Computed example of a mutant assay.
Amino acid sequence: MLITCPYCGPRDVSEFSYQGDGNRTRPDPASTDQAAWNAYVYDRTNIAGDHREIWQHSGGCRSHLAVTRSTLTHRISEVALAGGSTGRRHGGRS
């Protein structure tokens, strides 16, 4: 599987580290709402199809990327800088 880093170009997935689900919202760190924290940590959906994930280019420029990947085919349809950056968007290849 290849992931197209906005800075480094297409790279093998072995250069990247999976950081987690890109759709979940973390509760406020000061929150003491046990139910919200339990839901954040343990409640997971297992969707079939396109899924937004966060990856870090740990073997390259160290950027955090928002990757849209099909869980059925592993085809990557979009890669962008994570965190709301206005970086360039690139289609990925699998």
Rank of each mutant, 00 (worst) to 15 (best):
A35C: 06
E53R: 07
S14D: 11
A35N: 11
T4V: 12
R52M: 02
G60D: 07
S58P: 07
S31H: 01
C61R: 07
A35V: 14
V79R: 09
N46K: 15
R24A: 01
S58K: 06
H57E: 07
T4D: 14
P27V: 10
R89E: 04
G49E: 11
T86D: 08
G49A: 12
E78F: 13
I3Y: 09
T68V: 04
P10D: 01
P10S: 02
F16Q: 04
E78T: 06
S77M: 04
D50Y: 12
R93P: 12
S94H: 05
I54G: 01
T25W: 14
P29H: 11
C8L: 08
G84A: 07
I47K: 11
C61Y: 08
A82K: 08
A36Y: 04
S63P: 13
C8T: 06
G91V: 06
S63L: 15
R89Q: 04
L65I: 05
I54A: 02
A35Y: 06
R24D: 00
A39Q: 08
R44P: 15
D12G: 03
W55Q: 10
R89Y: 04
R26E: 01
Y7R: 10
R44C: 15
G84V: 09
S70C: 13
A82R: 05
S31K: 00
Y40H: 10
S94P: 13
L81P: 09
H51G: 01
R26K: 03
G9K: 11
G22F: 03
S94L: 12
S17K: 06
V67N: 00
N23I: 09
R24F: 00
E15T: 01
R62C: 06
S94M: 07
R52L: 10
M1S: 09
T45K: 12
S77F: 05
S58Q: 04
H90V: 08
S94D: 11
F16T: 00
S17N: 11
N46L: 14
S58V: 05
H90Q: 04
T25R: 11
R11W: 02
R89K: 07
G22D: 00
T32D: 10
V13W: 03
A39W: 03
H64Q: 07
R11H: 01
S77T: 08
R44H: 14
D21F: 08
A66G: 00
W37E: 03
R69G: 12
R52Q: 07
V13C: 03
R44E: 14
I47C: 13
A80Q: 13
T86S: 06
V41E: 14
C8G: 03
Y40R: 03
E53A: 10
R44Q: 14
I47Q: 12
A82T: 09
T25N: 08
Y18N: 11
W55Y: 15
R52V: 08
T4S: 15
D50L: 12
A80G: 13
D50S: 08
L81W: 15
T4Q: 09
T71Y: 02
W37A: 01
S77N: 02
W55C: 07
G22W: 00
S70W: 10
D50F: 09
R26Q: 05
W37S: 00
R26W: 02
G87H: 01
R69N: 13
G84L: 06
L65V: 02
A39N: 08
P6C: 15
C5G: 04
R26Y: 00
V41S: 13
D12K: 00
H64Y: 12
T25H: 10
R24T: 00
G83E: 15
N38D: 15
A30S: 03
I3M: 10
S17T: 13
R93H: 10
T73W: 13
